[in-house]
């Protein structure tokens, strides 16, 4: 049976993971390769590396990191952050990334989604959507945001999700800025609507605090994958425990031990 996926997300700056990571058993918790390898060994189904470096030197460091990750781990991984051209994607895929995630650049230039999926195939093009539920002239609406969720756009989230699929996205990474960081659970209703409308997988992100939150997002939220960062990094939830818990509750999981 096709399983639901558990995806740790690693933020990387100048080749190192940021957000203090609380793993005493790692020689260097800031080493993004070592941390990713540990998650893979624990049973993570996929990894996401987000480059939050702004400098040109940092970009080349990130490419080097991608190469080292690809050399080391044997599960799929997606890379994102500041990708805005065919050349960017080509360099990252060539370094060994399995998928790339685009966000602001897709909002600025939606044709980029078409171009990338034609050039590299839909299967490796993930479109990330940061969304926030805000007051508009038409009342409360789910609106796409950019710049880490700070800047609202004119786009309504639900039709935008459909549009990026029609343009060739292979997967959606939906982050609710309303729930992100709250640890009160994923945005279930919105995730359910978007996943229900979509014929491509939806990765839910933002708000995971408990193992039950994952159960809810896979059932009520209809998500295909659940992504989280700090709860894994700070070992509030261990991936093997989480997968066992979900498997015991009849969520299809890839059990590796």
């Amino acid at each position: 049976m096709l399983t639901k996926r558990i995806i740790p997300c690693l933020d990387v700056k100048e080749g190192r993971t940021v957000k203090g990571v609380n793993f005493v058993n790692l020689r260097d918790a800031g080493d993004a390769v070592e941390l990713g390898a540990m998650y893979a060994a624990q049973g993570a189904d996929e990894l996401v590396y987000l480059d939050i470096t702004a400098t040109v030197e940092g970009r080349s460091t990130f490419i080097d990191l991608v190469r080292r990750v690809a050399h080391t781990i044997n599960i799929p991984f997606t890379v994102g952050g500041g990708i805005s051209s065919i050349a960017d994607v080509s360099a990252l895929l060539h370094a060994g990334a399995d998928k790339v995630s685009i966000n602001s650049s897709a909002v600025r230039n939606p044709d980029l989604i078409n171009e990338l999926s034609l050039e590299f195939g839909s299967q490796c093009i993930v479109v990330a959507i940061d969304t926030r539920y805000v007051e508009t002239s038409d009342g409360m609406q789910h609106i796409v945001h950019t710049h880490g969720g700070r800047k609202p756009t004119e786009l309504l989230t639900i039709p935008w999700a459909k549009e990026v699929e029609d343009r060739g996205a292979g997967e959606l990474l939906l982050t609710s800025m309303d729930t992100d960081g709250t640890k009160n659970g994923f945005a279930l209703e919105l995730t359910s609507i978007i996943s229900g409308n979509a014929n491509i997988p939806v990765i839910a992100s933002g708000g995971a605090g408990t193992m039950d939150n994952f159960y809810d997002v896979f059932t009520t939220g209809k998500a295909d994958a659940g992504l989280a960062a700090s709860i894994f990094h700070f070992r509030e939830i261990d991936i093997p425990d989480l997968k066992q818990y979900l498997s015991d509750k009849d969520i299809p999981m890839r059990m590796t031990r």
Partner: peptide, 28 residues
Amino acid sequence: KVPHMGWNNIYGYNSALTDQLSDNAYVY
């Protein structure tokens, strides 16, 4: 959804390539 994307189990092995795999092994 189509594509079929993610980890799924395989079964009914009859190949040297599946030697030493556990039943219902997951692949991507």
